[in-house]
């Protein structure tokens, strides 16, 4: 019994320490990034390359996710709208959930899976193949050269992609309303525009910006902390994906709560 308790305490303690280490590492990295932003001494070409890799290459997955998010929300809302006859709330229902909650979370998770995991794997591979050491040996600080461009790209592009995602979610919703549910798309769009969901829209953008910051810090932290070759890279990617997903839900809750005050 005593041994079992000790083992349990050890497991819980180990997990708590691991979480604290990740949060501490990512937050420390965030502060180092913020310090490296002023005065700007990062590689401009690297920033553009990151914007392209992070943004342009991610938009298909964001558009696809957004179309389905809009479509799903219409299908879910339509059931109650038909039951109650309250056709006037379909636009509001779809807009509110897409802009404020489901859109940011699902797009954030997809972005984290594509960009965050890729980022951890790329940096981790650079570590194990000594490319990061090569930068240091060439008198180049890896932080402004490798991390800052990724941070800026993820922060900027996820926010922009969220706007694109909101737009395509409305398209997905309108198409589904028209083709599958039997509502005219104009009714949905007109209702959505009249619902004045600016707060929800900005909340989604704030969440996207926070997700961008957390995904960049967490994925870079795990990438740069890789030890032990290919196995280490795999482990780091796994940890990065899980930590990013957890961070997305925590941030979503915190921002949502702050907006509700």
């Amino acid at each position: 019994m005593n041994g079992a308790l000790k083992s349990l305490a050890s497991s819980v303690g180990g997990a708590v320490l691991a979480i604290a280490e990740t949060i501490g590492g990512a937050v420390t990295l965030l502060f180092r990034i913020l310090r490296a932003l002023f005065p700007p001494r990062y590689d401009a070409e690297g920033v553009w390359r990151s914007f392209y890799n992070v943004g342009v290459k991610s938009y298909p997955i964001v558009v696809m996710t957004a179309l389905f998010v809009g479509a799903i929300m219409v299908i879910q809302t339509a059931f109650y709208v038909k039951k109650t006859g309250a056709t006037g709330i379909i636009g509001y229902g779809v807009g509110f959930s897409v802009f404020a909650e489901i859109g940011p979370i699902l797009i954030g998770l997809m972005f984290s899976g594509r960009v965050g995991a890729n980022n951890t794997a790329e940096l981790g591979t650079m570590v194990v193949t000594e490319q990061v050491d090569a930068l240091r040996a060439l008198a180049i600080d890896p932080l402004p050269y490798l991390v800052v461009p990724r941070f800026l790209a993820m922060l900027g592009m996820l926010t922009l992609l969220m706007v694109l995602g909101d737009l395509f979610a409305i398209v997905g919703a309108a198409l589904t309303a028209q083709l599958l549910v039997g509502f005219h798309w104009r009714v949905l769009v007109a209702d959505l525009l009249q619902s004045r969901l600016l707060d929800e829209f900005t909340m989604g953008l704030v969440k996207a910006a926070c997700f961008g910051i957390s995904i960049s810090c967490i994925s870079c932290y795990f990438g740069l902390a890789v030890r032990g070759g290919a196995t280490g890279v795999g482990r780091a990617v796994n940890n990065s994906v899980v930590s990013n997903a957890t961070a997305i839900f925590v941030i979503d809750f915190v921002v949502g709560y702050l907006y509700s005050l």
């Binding site: 193949t129 000594e130 490319q131 050491d133 090569a134 040996a137 060439l138």
Partner: peptide, 10 residues
């Protein structure tokens, strides 16, 4: 510095 595993930027 010449690295054992080349460390070329891929």
């Amino acid at each position: 510095y010449l690295f054992q595993n080349y460390a070329l930027f891929d």
